[in-house]
């Protein structure tokens, strides 16, 4: 796993972020919620860009 993948707390006001994430899903069907998650994931991956980091993140998610 790339040592450059940050697995330490990195989001300021984490509770605000989590509330915003839940709010984005509010009222959506299961299908629409899944699609939103997929789009969000791709947007974040693109922002990161770095292939090593993305590979390490994929590995980290498979716990």
């Amino acid at each position: 796993m790339s040592e450059r993948l940050n697995l330490k707390p990195n989001i300021a006001n984490a509770d605000d972020f989590y509330a915003e994430l839940l709010a984005a899903h509010e009222g959506l069907s299961k299908e629409d919620s899944d699609a939103l998650n997929a789009r969000l994931l791709l947007i974040l991956a693109n922002h990161i860009g770095d292939r090593d980091i993305l590979a390490a993140a994929l590995k980290a998610a498979k716990i």
């Binding site: 940050n6 697995l7 330490k8 707390p9 990195n10 989001i11 989590y18 994430l21 839940l22 899903h25 509010e26 959506l28 299961k30 919620s33 998650n37 980290a60 716990i63």
Partner: peptide, 21 residues
């Protein structure tokens, strides 16, 4: 209060065992 909310909650708990973030 929704399936997605539970899914995300459980993901946070699973990750918390392994990663500090």
């Amino acid at each position: 209060k929704s399936d997605m909310s539970r899914l995300l909650r459980d993901a946070v708990l699973d990750l918390s065992e392994h990663y500090e973030f």
